[in-house]
């Protein structure tokens, strides 16, 4: 009983998260400007981190937690670096 409830809800939640990743991806391809793409990348990082957490719930495996922690750290550092680049890159031009 509880396995069925959990299986269905995790599947629906993962579908919703995958759809969210698709929307972020479309926005990343469309742009129109560099900051939109960087923000889309940040959203994609967040969605994939939540997706990994839901995989942890699906399998009952604790290791997914560590992967999602690392992804959130990577997302923060890369978005920060890209935002800095958007500011500095214009100064030189």
């Amino acid at each position: 009983m509880s396995a069925t409830i959990l299986l269905w809800s995790v599947t629906i939640a993962q579908g919703a998260l995958a759809l969210a990743m698709c929307f972020a991806l479309i926005r990343m391809m469309r742009g129109p400007r560099a900051q939109d793409r960087v923000l889309a990348l940040d959203t994609l990082y967040l969605n994939s981190m939540l997706m990994l957490l839901s995989f942890g719930i699906r399998t009952g495996n604790d290791m997914y937690f560590e992967a999602s922690l690392i992804i959130s750290v990577l997302g923060f550092v890369s978005t920060g670096a890209l935002a800095k680049f958007l500011m500095r890159g214009e100064v030189i031009e």
Binding site: A3, L46, S54
Partner: peptide
Amino acid sequence: AVLVSAFLLLGAFLTLVGSIGF
């Protein structure tokens, strides 16, 4: 199971709505 599912679905749908708005 119901509690876990409820929180999981709520979070997933909030994220989805956020991405749609984005």
